[in-house]
Design a protein around this nucleic acid. Structure first.
Length: 919
RNA sequence: GGGCAAUUGGCGCAGUUGGUUAGCGCGCUUCCUUGACAUGGAAGAGGUCACAGGUUCGAAUCCUGUAUUGCCCACCA
């Protein structure tokens, strides 16, 4: 047996010392790598089996531009915890990492940078501009990786994927072409949400509606050829006066008596001096405003529809930057808001303003840029969503994909059943360029490559020049392929066959539409035709959907309830917290505070709880190791044959843990009451944690760990171990199990302590060990009840001491009177524990039957009907005696009240007859 | 307008299918530096569980309504 120097643990846990060391060791040891069955295991420990069931999580790819905020920290901690947990359960755990090119966000940042140099993207040209963006991407993407590492996250870094990687790029193009071939992608002139800042279209999901204080303007449009009994003008109401430049009609309700006679007549559009008709349409609400609506088909989605019904022209009066174009007459060139002011002033001068009222309505803003979006008429590409949404809704309704918490299914259903077509073209350069080529007179050819498009054109008899669509695709049009494009789709790769479908998707509920729903659609649409590993078709939906469980975690808010965001600057940098409190502390705190789907207010001080917990565990280990040494040296003849030997001996160089030899806390039977109790508690906890984790109640699991470790193990069991050294080895074994049980949540401190405790070599990792399993045979309700009674006695005795203001150093004398024999012998057998934990100088244990002891001499506490404990009082001042009397009287009253209520219940026939017997 | 949630001691939150005395963390009070830990230990104060009805032997828990707050969706010029 070789002897290595014993490791002394420092008095307090210093995370910085251990985190980097272990992260590097994990990586060097290939801990994060996942293998296919056909790959030879490359793990240095050789523990990897090749036929393990995979457990796959695809990381929601953060924006390359991004800095991780607390929400990311939470989400990635959740994923890492599940990955580590399943790896320990024996799965081939794959966490697929990557980043998203984030079209608008990234392009905006680079354009901003250019602007500081006095340049625009058009000055550079497409190619040079894209070079700049790539440069920018390269300098920024490392940062996210660094942050994830600092959080202890261990995805399979070898597989890191970027949505603009060549393979992924091709997958996006392939998806577009296939959907186009199926007629699910089309091009059309529609009113879309226009972002004047990005000068691009946005999808409906990228628009945020906010109540906005504005004005409702009432304008007079003069009636042409007015008869004597007719009004001089028609009054219309609008919130966006500048759009009047594009008015092509005024609509009234066909059943509105006020205007019926005027239908078909003409009005003179002021300022523009254009004749526009009065038309009738059901859409108009007689009650609202004046009952007359100006119709601007090019600048309002409803007006657009009306325009189509009435065959009206679509007059676009704005440039893409939301300045008025040449159609706007003398307002041409003005910004939309400047034009608005001028139009109002001009109408005022003409006496054509009836009134202007304050008005609050809901206005759309760009999610990214924050500016007001402009409904705008333009040619865009759309995905037909209904055919995709129907099966995607069904798999969730049928439970093939489960949402946690379940209620999100309502939101999902609502969106899926009211779904509208998805505008996927963006007028940007950074992204996947739309694979459509145009001929000189409106011909459109969609192909995988320019050659492909050329061939199609030739086949169609078009020989002229082709030019590719300038636009790129919505970022989410690439993200929705994430669960399979990361594994090489459209090729039917071995990775894809092994690791699709995934198991868990963890995300914040705010991207349920953007991403979750669309991934489900894409998974069903694109994976259903791809054969499985054995060549058989995917006939079961279970093999087609991209994941089985979706965990919607909470949104982290600041202490006054605001969503944490970069723009508000109210999110602490997770890395600062990690440095201040330790990674494990931050992880624990986030998981502890992360109830299922309930928003959480986060203040950085809450990390103290996690830090303290890590420190508690550290010191418990320190103590147990000290006790073990003590026990070992006191033992005259160590039993080398016994299975304790290696646990006893922390200097062994042989890895103690052999795969699957021991998954529970101990193989040995427990002897003392405390031993039985802690084993029962430990196994119950292990059982509960598995249950919580498997049901995605992750905060429950952390709470169970915390309570068991701190209260049961440290506060009670270790105190008992101080009194009964024969429990030392069990304490070691339980602790070893605790470390394994806690490891997925707090990987660093548990790894460090596990090695200190077991003496395992650095290359043997706790994360490769088996997760603790509960042995239900060790759950012992009787032992738990018995030990709880002992705890109750001790607590009662401590209370007596505290009330009598006895300092701990002063000994006390107790008399314990118990009603039945079993309690009597129970407490006698636990006499030592009771005496020492309540610092009794003397403890008399009696069978109840003696008379009441004088309350001048004794203070007492009741033991839930099973007996009473008395403490002999020292000299008591009259004042103190009175106080004590009062307290006892109060206590007596409370108990008798409770007793009375119980009595009355029991004498109530209703209760006795209806309540179940055990009550 | 439609939908989803929340309302529990000073603050932040648990409380799973209804069942004896409603828990936890922080904060507060008192005592304790006793050989794991003061990032600790012991004890304590503090809640008629938003409100009003109802179901039940029994309600924080189930039902109805009201109020307040938050979020999502839709949107009338």
């Amino acid at each position: 047996m070789s002897v290595t120097p014993k490791k002394e643990l420092a008095k307090a846990y210093a995370p910085q010392d251990v985190e980097k060391k272990w992260y590097d060791t994990w990586e060097a040891g290939g801990l994060f790598y996942a293998y296919r069955p056909d790959e030879s295991p490359q793990d240095p420990t050789g523990r990897r089996a090749v036929d393990k069931a995979p457990f796959v999580v695809c990381m929601p790819p953060p924006n390359v531009t991004g800095i991780l905020h607390m929400g990311h920290a939470l989400n990635n901690t959740i994923q890492d915890t599940y990955i580590r947990y399943h790896r320990m359960l024996g799965h081939e755990a794959l966490w697929m990492p990557g980043t998203d090119h984030a079209g608008i966000a990234t392009q905006t940042k680079v354009e901003k940078q250019l602007k500081e140099e006095g340049l625009s993207r058009r000055d550079l040209g497409r190619e040079k501009f894209l070079d700049r963006v790539w440069q920018w991407k390269h300098t920024h993407s490392d940062f996210i990786e660094k942050q994830l590492r600092a959080l202890g996250c261990g995805p399979d870094w070898r597989r890191f994927c970027f949505t603009m990687d060549e393979g992924y790029y091709n997958a996006v193009i392939e998806a577009f072409v296939r959907l186009h071939e199926k007629g699910l992608i089309y091009r059309g002139k529609r009113i879309i949400n226009w972002s004047p800042l990005a000068q691009s279209a946005l999808s409906d999901e990228e628009v945020i509606y906010k109540e906005t204080q504005g004005k409702l303007h009432f304008f007079r449009y003069p009636l042409i050829d007015r008869k004597a009994d007719e009004p001089e003008y028609i009054v219309i109401a609008t919130t966006r006066p500048e759009t009047m430049l594009g008015d092509v009609a005024v609509a009234v309700n066909p059943f509105d008596e006020r205007y019926q006679k005027l239908i078909g007549r003409k009005l003179m559009l002021p300022l523009m001096n254009r004749e526009i008709p009065i038309i009738a349409d059901d859409y108009v609400d007689k009650e609202f405003g004046t009952g007359c609506v100006k119709i601007t088909p090019a600048h309002d989605p409803n007006d657009f529809e009306i325009g189509l019904r009435h065959n009206l022209p679509q007059l676009n009066v704005m440039y893409p930057d939301a300045t008025i174009n040449e159609q706007g007459g003398k307002y041409s060139g003005l910004d939309r808001y400047v034009a608005r002011k001028k139009i109002i002033a001009d109408l005022e001068e003409l006496g054509l303003i009836e009134k202007i009222e304050d008005y609050t309505n809901s206005v759309g803003y760009s999610e990214r840029g924050g500016e007001m979006i402009e409904p705008y008429l333009s040619d865009q590409w759309f995905v037909k969503m209904k055919p995709l949404a129907e099966p995607a809704l069904k798999v969730v309704e049928d439970g093939l994909i489960q949402f946690h918490p379940e209620r999100w299914i309502n939101t999902y259903r609502h969106w899926m059943t009211n779904i509208r077509d998805w505008c996927i073209s963006r007028q940007l350069w950074w992204g996947h360029r739309i694979p459509a080529w145009y001929g000189g007179s409106g011909e459109v050819f969609v192909g995988r490559t320019a050659e492909d498009a050329r061939a199609k054109a030739d086949a169609a008899g078009y020989t002229g020049h082709l030019h590719q669509d300038e636009d790129v695709l919505d970022t989410w049009f690439s993200s929705w392929l994430w669960p399979f494009a990361t594994f090489g789709w459209p090729e039917n790769t071995k990775d894809l066959q092994t690791f699709y479908p995934g198991n868990l998707l963890s995300t914040a509920p705010d991207i349920i539409f953007f991403w979750v729903a669309r991934m489900i659609m894409a998974g069903i649409e694109f994976m259903k035709d791809l054969p499985k590993a054995d060549g058989s078709p995917r006939t079961s939906m279970e093999d087609i959907v991209p994941f089985k469980h979706v965990y919607f975690h909470n949104i982290i808010r600041d202490q006054i309830g605001r969503k944490m965001s970069k723009s508000l600057g109210n999110s602490p940098d997770p890395i600062d917290l990690v440095q201040k409190y330790g990674t494990d502390a931050v992880r624990f705190t986030l998981l502890y505070l992360a109830p299922l789907g309930q928003d959480v207010r986060f203040g950085e001080e809450s990390c103290e709880q996690g830090r303290n917990f890590a420190n508690k565990l550290w010191n418990a280990t320190r103590f147990v190791m000290m006790k073990r040494d003590e026990y070992q040296s006191n033992k005259s003849e160590p039993t080398f044959e016994s299975e304790d030997t290696e646990l006893l001996n922390s200097t062994s160089n042989e890895p103690r843990i052999q795969s699957n030899t021991k998954t529970g806390f101990t193989a040995k039977p427990a002897t003392t009451l405390a031993d039985k109790w802690i084993l029962s508690r430990a196994n119950k906890t292990a059982f509960g944690i598995k249950e919580s984790l498997d049901n995605y109640l992750i905060n429950d699991a952390t709470k169970k760990l915390y309570d068991f470790i701190w209260k049961d193990y440290c506060d009670w069991y270790l105190e008992v171990v101080k009194l009964q050294p024969e429990s030392t080895l069990l304490a070691v074994e339980i602790l070893e199990g605790i470390l394994r049980m806690l490891h997925p949540v707090m990987p660093f401190v548990t790894e460090e302590l596990w090695h200190a405790l077991t003496g395992n070599e650095e290359s043997v990792l706790i994360g490769q060990d088996d997760y603790i399993t509960s042995d239900e045979g060790k759950i012992d309700p009787e032992a738990e009840a018995d030990f709880e009674f002992i705890q109750k006695i001790i607590e009662a005795a401590r209370l007596l001491r505290a009330n009598a203001k006895l300092t701990p150093s002063k000994p006390a004398k107790f008399i314990l009177r118990l009603k039945n024999d079993s309690d009597h012998s129970l407490s006698k057998s636990a006499r030592l524990i009771i005496e020492r934990l309540c610092r009794a100088e003397a403890l008399a244990i009696e069978v109840d039957g003696g008379g009441e002891l004088s309350s001048n001499e004794y203070s007492s506490e009741l033991l839930s009907g099973r007996g009473q404990i008395f403490m002999k009082l020292e000299v008591l001042s009259a004042e103190e005696a009175a106080k004590e009397q009062a307290r006892i009287a109060k206590e007596r009253e409370r108990v008798s009240k409770q007793y009375q209520s119980l009595l009355s219940k029991l004498s109530d026939d209703n209760f006795v007859s209806r309540a179940p017997a055990h009550i």
